[in-house]
Design a binder for these strands. Sequence first.
DNA 1: TCCTACATTGGACTTTGTCTAAGTCAAGAT
DNA 2: ATCTTGACTTAGACAAAGTCCAATGTAGGA
Lengths: 137, 137
Amino acid sequence: MSDLLDRLRERGWRLTAQRRVVAEVLNGDHVHYTADEVHAHASARLPEIARATVYNTLSELVAIGEVIEVSTDGRAKRYDPNVRHSHQHLVCSRCGTIRDVHPQGDPLSALPEDERYGFTISDATVTYRGICPNCAS
Amino acid sequence: MSDLLDRLRERGWRLTAQRRVVAEVLNGDHVHYTADEVHAHASARLPEIARATVYNTLSELVAIGEVIEVSTDGRAKRYDPNVRHSHQHLVCSRCGTIRDVHPQGDPLSALPEDERYGFTISDATVTYRGICPNCAS
DNA sequence: TCCTACATTGGACTTTGTCTAAGTCAAGAT
DNA sequence: ATCTTGACTTAGACAAAGTCCAATGTAGGA
């Protein structure tokens, strides 16, 4: 993920060990960690890293659009670094794991003009819910 | 909402003053209160009602399918009594208010078989996000 | 190398929600 | 009408997730 670090530096970010570690933890295609899971993985590499720092860094990554915040169940938010390809989520109602999925068509176009109530709509997210093969057995 | 109270009684529910008040608070077409808001409104009619009772009652209403739990932002869950007509939600990114909307088509059908990963999918929810007219001005 | 603005830390605090033990009460039985 | 009982409610402690702040540390430019 040196791309990410480069992009961050271009934005004038100070590149600290903590931020590097958080960015590394978020590397990968099917990562959907909670903030605490990110903190746990980051602590393995950098034991002194503070919870607040992880929260700060994640918020900033979300703010600049490098990471998406996903709150599927009203419990801990999860952080999804796969922003390159637009995608939606498939969530197991039992264990909470998330998979990226790619439905056909644009959900935004399904909302007629007279159902928009003057909102300036910026995006539509679709969450599919069900039971994963693991939990079904 | 005497319908609701009747349905509850048919299920063998004990009809208490607390449950009646919670059901009354949830009455209406565009209600999307948080648990604390429900508690606040309920307290206006029945000052001694406990927070835990509101949580219990809401959970039970959700369990029997009379109310839908909506968690749009990772903050407090909201409770949506409009289960009669299937609908989706339009959320203001700034102030958090929710409107019910009715997109065309079935979002579930947009997910191809080879994107289901063995899940038994039970539903798909669509959340539209944008800025409401109030916040835009 | 030094400076300084920005980042990090740790701990207190807030919000949202859950749990439990003790007391209360709705509704059927008598 | 009253009794009985198990389900409901209560208050407060607890837990999980997240925010805030003052003090300390440090990346990167001068």
